[in-house]
Simulated scan of single mutants.
Amino acid sequence: MAKPTASAGPSARAVAPVRRPELALPELRPHDADALRPDGDHDGASFTDLDLDGADGGGSTFLECALRGCSLNGTRLTRARLLDSELTGVRGVGTELAGAEVRDVELTDARLGGTQLHGARLTRVVVRGGKIDFLNLRQSTLTDVAFEGCVLVEPDLAGARLERVSFTDCALRGVDLSGATLRDVDLRGVAELDIAAGFDRLAGAVVSTVQLMDLAPAFAAQLGVRVED
């Protein structure tokens, strides 16, 4: 007789798949300014190997753009709109994207630290490869977001809403889920899963049997259950 899985039961259902972006960038023209400016309007522009450290592009719109190999230390993109765009090999510490709208975007091989995305909206986004330390996604909304082959160190998802979010071959270290709301969040592909806070918010997530066993002591502690041999 086959052994039932942890998700088996009359109420079990398939995890809703992530709807992914379908990018088809037009022929891009090089960005023709030395730096960003607040409330800028960028359409079909290529930002390649630019030093944008400390630049202020708050409130700007990037439509069908590509940022490749750019330095974003302290770059201010508060309330910016990144639409139908790709970011490849960007790097920086303290990039400010609070309240931003990120839709139909691919982020590949990023090296970022302390990125501020609190209160942002991410829709149909793929984060592929790279490493992001101390990512602040507090009170953000993630819908149809796929993390693939990346390392996330101490991401803060407190109070965030996640729907149709998946993790494949990722390391998820020290994640804070306090007050978060999850629906169709697939954690089964996480290679390294370390939850620092918010075990009680895992309703709406799917984990593997092995992950469930690893998380059992934390679940027991959450319920006040003492386990002794």
Score class of each variant (00 low, 15 high):
L63Q: 11
A66K: 14
L67E: 12
R68C: 02
L72I: 15
N73F: 06
R76G: 04
L77Q: 08
T78N: 05
R79M: 07
A80W: 14
R81I: 06
D84E: 10
T88G: 09
T88Y: 01
R91C: 12
V93H: 02
G94N: 06
L97T: 00
A98I: 11
A100T: 02
E101F: 15
R103Y: 05
E106K: 14
D109Q: 08
R111I: 00
R111K: 10
G113R: 10
G114C: 08
T115L: 15
T115S: 13
Q116R: 14
Q116L: 11
H118Y: 07
A120V: 15
A120N: 05
T123S: 12
T123N: 13
V125C: 07
G129Y: 01
G130V: 05
K131G: 14
I132Q: 11
R138K: 15
R138F: 00
S140R: 01
T141S: 12
L142P: 06
L142M: 09
V145H: 06
E148F: 06
G149R: 12
G149K: 11
V151I: 11
A158H: 04
G159W: 02
G159D: 07
G159K: 03
A160T: 03
E163F: 01
R164L: 08
F167G: 06
F167S: 02
F167P: 08
C170V: 15
A171M: 02
A171C: 01
L172A: 04
L172P: 02
V175F: 03
V175E: 01
V175R: 01
